[in-house]
């Protein structure tokens, strides 16, 4: 089921949580709402799920306005960061809950409920835990049960609020791959909120980057990483080096006041000066981290560090040591002025 959001606004007291949000989510898509805490991503999710009400704007499911509909009538599955499982029910009863509270006419028979619950529990690979209580499960298991519970009522839309936020790094990684596979199997339109860019880029079909109540950019993970639409997106996603026009006019062009951004792996290092735009720097630190080598350099008259990433292969072709005097030149650089933006490709 597709979701259309138009001119959505939400205010909490004097704090503007959402400011004119427009978003189109296609049927069967897996979308990530990505942003720092307080950017409004959770508010947006809660409004879509019917747990909060927008001040103005429209929200359509498959072309149909659902703003007047209660959470229980929206047919939306919601997964919470802290699981929100029913503590006094077994895992089985947790998952069966949505089926048991259906009105009498639609309620499946006990045998049918039993079959469906076990089917869902095997889908999340936790069938053997049916008789346990939530307190006896690990965080990752609880979240999978929460997901099974949400899926029990066959929702048309699945909303996940920082689903892996409370889990440790290893389990997180495992679960997000598993979520991706699950989505490929079920094709439910899904939106998940996260503040972890790696998670968003790895799992989602499209990423919505939010900041201070507005959408900064919507795009595929690749687009978001390769062509950030704003300085915020540039800085929020991945590492970045900043160059101010007053110091590096040759790179930013002839603009009055502008900032240029370049990724650490988009900078070339050379021992000889190839052209006039190359910047003479001194190597301050060389550190091999796994498959990449991180080099920190600084210019002679400023203390600001520029971060460069080289592949191990490239580093071995032309090794560097602390104190080396070298020249750097960005392969790709992006300049943002006040308001307008220009893209320059050096070389």
């Amino acid at each position: 089921m597709s979701i259309t959001i138009e001119h959505l606004n939400k205010q909490f007291g004097s704090y503007r949580a959402l400011n004119d949000i427009n978003l189109e989510v296609n049927s069967g898509e897996l979308i990530a709402l990505l942003g720092p805490s307080g950017c409004g991503k959770t508010s947006l999710l809660r409004i879509i799920g019917g747990l909060d009400v927008a001040d103005s704007g429209s929200l359509l499911f498959h072309g149909e306005d659902v703003q007047q509909r209660d959470a229980r009538e929206r047919n939306v599955g919601f997964v919470f960061q802290h699981y929100a499982l029913f503590r006094r029910m077994t895992v089985f009863e947790n998952v069966a809950f949505g089926l048991r509270v259906k009105p009498k006419k639609e309620r499946p028979s006990d045998a049918e409920i039993k079959r469906r619950v076990h089917e869902l529990l095997s889908l999340v690979q936790l069938d053997y835990l049916a008789d346990r209580y939530p307190a006896q499960l690990s965080g990752g298991q609880r979240q999978r049960i929460a997901l099974a519970r949400a899926l029990a009522v066959e929702p048309k839309i699945l909303l996940l609020d920082e689903p892996f936020g409370a889990l440790d790094a290893q389990v997180r990684k495992e679960l997000r791959r598993w979520l991706r596979r699950l989505h490929d199997e079920l094709h439910i339109t899904s939106i998940f909120v996260t503040h972890d860019q790696e998670e968003a880029l790895e799992v989602a079909d499209r990423v919505v980057v939010m900041n201070k109540g507005v959408i900064e950019q919507v795009g595929t993970p690749d687009e978001i990483y390769a062509t950030p639409a704003s300085p915020f997106v540039y800085q929020f996603i991945g590492n970045v080096n900043l160059f101010h026009s007053r110091d590096h006019a040759s790179w930013t062009g002839q603009h009055g006041d502008a900032v240029a951004y370049t990724r650490p792996h988009d900078i070339d290092i050379s021992h000889v000066q190839q052209d006039a735009t190359a910047l003479p720097v001194e190597v301050k630190l060389v550190r091999a981290i796994g498959s990449v080598v991180r080099v920190e350099v600084s210019t002679q008259n400023s203390s600001e560090l520029i971060e460069i990433e080289l592949s191990r292969e490239r580093f071995e072709l032309a090794p560097l040591a602390n104190g080396d005097k070298v020249f750097i030149r960005p392969r790709q650089i992006r300049v943002f002025e006040t308001g307008a933006q220009h893209e320059l490709s050096a070389a």
């Binding site: 799920g49 019917g50 747990l51 209660d70 959470a71 229980r72 009538e73 929206r74 939306v76 599955g77 919601f78 919470f80 802290h82 929100a84 499982l85 029913f86 503590r87 006094r88 029910m89 809950f97 949505g98 048991r100 509270v101 259906k102 929460a146 519970r149 949400a150 029990a152 009522v153």
Partner: peptide, 27 residues
């Protein structure tokens, strides 16, 4: 009893009474 638990119950289709009887009261 976290408000989230009640919200979870509501999003699963439970009415106010069902939320009280099945979720809040047992707690």
């Amino acid at each position: 009893v976290e408000a989230e638990v009640e919200e979870a119950a509501a999003s699963l289709g439970a009415g106010r009474w069902a939320v009280f009887r099945r979720v809040i009261f047992p707690a």
